[in-house]
Design a protein around this nucleic acid. Structure first.
Length: 750
DNA sequence: GGGTTGCCCGTTTTT
DNA sequence: CGGGCAACCC
């Protein structure tokens, strides 16, 4: 399926001796070809660390230096806002101010830009709002409840996911066939999708998917508008092409119909977003869609040592269906480096301590904290590390997990601001109208909704019309007076000052000040942090747009700070030393990925591992814990199959198990147990069989039945019989002590 | 309308 | 184990 990639390879041309911009001198022959081959479709298959960002940036600079296009005629799409910001900065260093006029951003930010201009053409008003996940879920939930769907049986989150996957494929509700709409409440998803879309338009709102879907619809219905953009963008560049979805592909195809000047950069081995609708097929099919495609491979790796590359290559070789690239070390002056460290720890907490001890060691040896990173599979894992980092007083930043703009207090504050910007924002209104408590309950909201529907006005405007109890009416009028007052103040006063006054006068800050929960103080801190962010914006409008599209991964990490982040968030980054934690079956590869996507899911997890290892320049440390707390109880784990797949010659393994943390020194045993952990007759059974993440529907706990009824011996309780398997141990009826719940490892066969 | 209690469920990854 | 939420009180 990938043989066409061998077809059109061209040989780098001779380097002209004529005067050329200095930035061209830094390219290797393949990179140079990717830059200089400006006309027609180009696909750059670039492995990890081969300088793809340099290629993209230099290509733009080259186009401009050559006078092939004006800055505003170049469109460059990146995967994150951060990547586009960095590219813009690098570009500005190369060519100066014209860099600012290049259209550079994520697909979503480009979509929003187009929609602001043509809102009216797709049924929106220009001040439409962009919903975040939370808004979307609440809206869907409401729609489902109005339809008397049992939320417990069918979760809004699942429905939202189905709708988003449709949107990722560029499908409007009308395009959904009955065959597509199965498996969720007997084929009701399409109907809810339609209702959801209608409701969005009523709210003058869009979601993330609409940012692509609506421009596509616009281009379809208004060919002259499409033609305008086709003429405008003479050159289009796309980063991380392996992670584009169908809607994005369609967008690119439409825009490049005329010129075919498209340059996509990607790496199939780093495709890790299929769950979000990304289609690796996009990269595979590229040469079919653009028959003249020139394919350029970047295989010289400038980032990692030979051992790191060897380990990563050995791992990814277990995947079938790759385009096939061989990364080569570009610079061997520093030797092959250290082997990849693989270390076993007793439990998750010990792993966190051990990893951070190692980080402190590296720090003493002279590596800056900012040049190291801890990468984890799930955001829940960050917690254990955070605790140790706080204890040790190490400055850190967590990316992923609880995102700044998804925190309750920030969403509330943003909702207040949204309402000031646009009192028709019903979602913002319902979010904060009774926060803090103003005595406005469900019945008052319902009255407002009825009235709003009747008069075709917003909830905010319905205050004057709805039938309300006097106390409620008074509260609502005070509230609306405050909003209007602040709206007025915004015309003359500083955004930050208005926000401070707004939250103060609304009683919102006092709500948290008087809150006795431990996190209240942190919430007030976060709001202060928000004030600082506001300082950077000229208008409220600009801030609201930013807040809707920004994510944690976009934030700058500055100064001497250690980052802890998910593997997904690490894509595109690099560090001297990388710490990859939690390599255990079920956690990584994650059981859900295996359950939902089988072999393909496994391969994507493997690519994720590959991405993780290749983030490292000098050293990579992989770790796993033999015990981990899951849903509040301890479970044994099995080390990840990915560890077994690493070539022996590139790794060195260590364990901490037999030293200070072996069983005989456990605090529970007081020195009485005869068996070390490894010798316990149940230990092996448990370690091999228990996968705590395993789907309960699968027949995985077969060994359990074998234990029930078994005679056992316990150091303290003597002989007994296993009665039941419990979540956190075995229930044993002891001959002398009666029923006790004990952990399997304290038992021997009796 | 607001507060409390007790149950259920989950935890993949995010523009 | 903890958060969310429905059902129940005042």
């Amino acid at each position: 399926m990938s043989d066409f990639f061998d077809l059109e390879e061209t040989i780098p041309e001779e380097i002209p001796q004529s005067s050329e911009p200095p930035f061209m001198k830094e390219l290797n022959p393949e990179q140079r070809q990717a830059v200089e081959h400006t006309e027609g479709p180009v696909l750059v298959l670039s492995g990890a660390g081969t300088g793809k960002t340099r290629v993209l940036t230099t290509r733009i600079a080259y186009l401009l230096a050559k006078g092939s296009a004006n800055p505003w005629q170049i469109l460059a799409v990146t995967f994150t806002n951060k990547a586009s910001r960095e590219m813009k900065e690098r570009l500005e260093q190369m060519i100066g101010l014209p860099a600012r006029s290049v259209w550079l951003g994520t697909f979503h930010s480009i979509g929003v830009k187009i929609l602001y201009r043509y809102a009216g053409e797709v049924g929106l008003k220009p001040d439409f709002i962009v919903l975040n996940t939370d808004d979307q879920e609440r809206l869907l939930k409401k729609i489902m409840q109005e339809d008397n769907v049992d939320i417990k049986q069918y979760s809004p989150a699942t429905l939202l996911d189905i709708i988003q996957r449709w949107k990722d494929r560029g499908l409007q509700p009308t395009a959904i066939t009955a065959a597509e709409d199965t498996g969720y409440c007997n084929g009701c998803a399409k109907r809810f999708y339609q209702i959801y879309q209608n409701r969005l338009r009523e709210l003058n709102a869009v979601d993330f998917g609409d940012l692509l879907l609506l421009p596509l619809a616009l281009f379809k219905e208004r060919p002259e508008i499409l033609a305008e953009y086709q003429a405008k963008f003479k050159y289009i560049l796309v980063d991380e092409y392996q992670d584009t979805n169908v809607a994005q592909y369609l967008m690119l195809r439409l825009l490049t119909q005329k010129t075919k000047n498209i340059c996509c950069v990607g790496d199939d081995d780093q495709s890790i977003y299929s769950w979000r609708g990304a289609e690796v097929e996009n990269i595979l099919n590229f040469p079919k869609v653009y028959p003249e495609t020139v394919i350029i491979r970047l295989e010289r790796n400038y980032r990692s040592t030979a051992h790191i590359l060897g380990a990563a290559a050995g791992l990814i070789a277990h995947n079938a269906g790759r385009l096939g690239k061989t990364l080569r070390v570009a610079d061997t002056r520093d030797g092959v480096g250290e082997k990849v460290h693989v270390k076993q720890y007793w439990n998750g907490a010990r792993e966190a301590e051990g990893v951070i001890e190692q980080i402190e060691t590296e720090q003493r040896r002279g590596t800056s904290l900012s040049q190291m990173a801890i990468l984890v599979r799930t955001s829940a894992q960050t917690r254990a590390f955070e605790e140790v980092l706080i204890k040790q007083g190490i400055p850190y930043k967590i990316i992923g997990g609880f995102k700044f703009y998804e925190r309750e207090e920030i969403r509330d504050a943003v909702a207040y601001l949204r309402l000031i910007l646009n009192t028709n924002d019903d979602l913002a209104f319902t979010r904060i109208v009774n926060k803090p408590r103003r005595g406005i309950g469900d019945s008052a909201i319902e009255a407002l909704e009825t009235s709003a529907k009747e008069h075709h006005i917003s909830l905010f405007d319905a205050i004057g019309w709805a039938a309300l109890r006097p106390s409620v009416r008074r509260a609502l009028e005070t509230f609306s007076a405050l909003i209007n007052e602040m709206k007025e103040k915004l015309k003359t006063m500083d955004l930050r000052v208005v926000t401070e006054q707004l939250l103060e006068n609304a009683g919102y800050l006092n709500m948290w000040r008087t809150d006795k929960s431990p996190e209240a103080e942190g919430r007030l801190e976060n709001i202060k942090e928000l004030y600082n962010v506001l300082d950077e914006f000229e208008t409220l409008n600009a801030f609201i747009e930013y807040a809707a599209l920004v994510t944690d991964a976009d934030e700058n990490t500055t100064g001497e700070q250690l980052v802890v982040m998910t593997l997904h968030a690490s894509k595109g980054l690099e560090f001297d030393h990388v710490f990859l934690a939690g390599w255990e079956e079920g956690l990584f590869p994650h059981q859900k990925a295996l359950d939902e996507a089988g072999e393909e899911g496994l391969e994507e997890e493997r690519r994720l591992a590959y991405v993780g290892i290749t983030r490292a320049r000098k050293k990579a440390f992989i770790s796993y814990a033999t015990n981990r707390k899951i849903y509040g109880h301890w479970e044994n784990t099995v080390s990840s199959r990915f560890i077994d797949e690493l070539p022996n010659e590139h790794i060195q393994s260590e364990t901490e198990m037999r030293e200070q943390y072996n069983f005989s020194q456990s605090v529970f045993d007081q020195g009485r147990n005869r068996y070390s952990y490894d010798q316990s007759p149940f230990a092996n059974v448990e370690r091999q069989a228990v996968n705590p993440y395993w789907n309960k529907n699968l027949p995985q706990y077969q060994y359990k039945s074998k234990r029930v009824g078994k005679r056992v011996y316990h150091e303290s309780f003597g002989y007994g019989t296993v009665v039941k398997e419990a979540a956190n141990g075995l229930e044993v009826h002891f001959d002398d002590y009666g029923m006790k719940k004990v952990q399997a490892r304290f038992l021997s066969e009796g």
